[in-house]
């Protein structure tokens, strides 16, 4: 069973990745009203980057620079491995799936920081520090929200969380939780309003001094993380593989695709708040809100559960 799940994981990741690359090219064109680019464009971009010279800056931390995209990608894959693709179809069955995913979330901070640090240049370093400052409270929010999703299941495993949603999906229990989790999705895939590591105002932030294959690797890891976080959202809030008629895997794929499109669109439609102001918003508004959501779910289960 695990082997099938592992193969499914590869399939899911490649399909999801292709979809993410496509959505990432098409949606901005749609929003800006520009002519739609060809579906071949992401491949062409990749081919271009593969043939571009990798730049070395002055005295970089070469090892960390090389490892950062790999770590980021690995975290995305590990996160995906504890998600059930169908009834009993998990690559790594874990009773503490949420904890595994949570540590993947937290370690993205390390991956992004490594990447920005290693170039040994100011703008990438600012991007890296900024990401740490924003991502840390964002992780806290996501943990409260996920615990809220785990409470009804009385388990930290994703399979149990999905099964507990047979009566009612978690999105109904805590709609604000879904929105908060989508924000986290934008943050850990470095996207749009939560792209504090690689923004335009820092000339590309952590990527400002990266060229060629390394830049390609970073882009791939970012998209893989987008797929992963979409899959986790679909599992924790939208009932994962549950659904009538169609096989569970197909439902899971559809729900993930929906979340992914929402994330890409949100990344292009909402403005980014300057980091200092965002910090205030997260600590004083969003974090208490996630607390309240957790409290509400707890009370509901205590009184009527």
């Amino acid at each position: 069973m695990e082997l099938i799940a592992a193969l499914l994981l590869l399939l899911f990741l490649s399909v999801g990745f292709a979809g993410a690359a496509l959505a990432d090219g098409m949606l901005p064109a749609l929003i800006s009203g520009q002519a739609r680019p060809s579906w071949r464009r992401p491949i062409a971009e990749a081919a271009r980057l593969l043939q571009t010279q990798p730049i070395r800056t002055e005295a970089p931390d070469a090892l960390l620079w090389f490892l950062a995209p790999a770590l980021y990608l690995a975290l995305a894959i590990i996160g995906l491995a504890v998600i059930p693709f169908g009834p009993g179809l998990v690559t790594i069955p874990s009773e503490v799936g949420i904890v595994v995913w949570g540590s993947c979330e937290a370690l993205t901070i390390v991956a992004v920081f490594m990447f920005g640090w290693s170039a040994n240049a100011p703008l990438p370093l600012i991007g890296a520090y900024r990401y740490v400052a924003i991502a840390l409270p964002a992780m806290l929010i996501s943990m409260f929200v996920l615990i809220g999703a785990a409470l009804p299941a009385e388990s930290l495993g994703f399979t149990e969380i999905v099964e507990a949603q047979r009566t009612v999906w978690n999105v109904v229990r805590q709609p604000a939780g879904l929105i908060l989790f989508l924000m986290l999705g934008l943050a850990i895939s470095l996207r749009g309003p939560f792209d504090y590591a690689d923004p335009a105002d820092l000339a590309g932030g952590t990527t400002a001094d990266v060229s060629g294959p390394a830049l390609l690797a970073w882009k791939i890891a970012r998209l893989a993380m987008l797929v992963s976080v979409s899959a986790v959202t679909a599992t924790a809030f939208l009932g994962g593989y549950l659904g009538p008629i169609l096989p569970g895997f197909v439902w899971f794929l559809l729900k993930t695709a929906l979340v992914l499109v929402v994330l890409v669109a949100a990344g292009n439609l909402f403005a980014r708040v300057p980091p200092a102001r965002m910090m205030g918003v997260i600590w004083t508004m969003l974090l208490p809100l996630s607390f309240l959501m957790l409290l509400a779910v707890g009370l509901e289960l205590l009184l009527w559960g």
Binding site: I55, L125, D209
Partner: peptide
């Protein structure tokens, strides 16, 4: 760098010089 970072280093203190691939300095 793109008119951007005019200076690297400082933080790392080692100052090991880049090799031939580097154009930033």
């Amino acid at each position: 760098h793109g008119g951007s970072h005019n200076d690297h280093g400082g933080h790392q203190g080692e100052g090991g010089h880049e090799d031939q691939g580097d154009h930033s300095s």
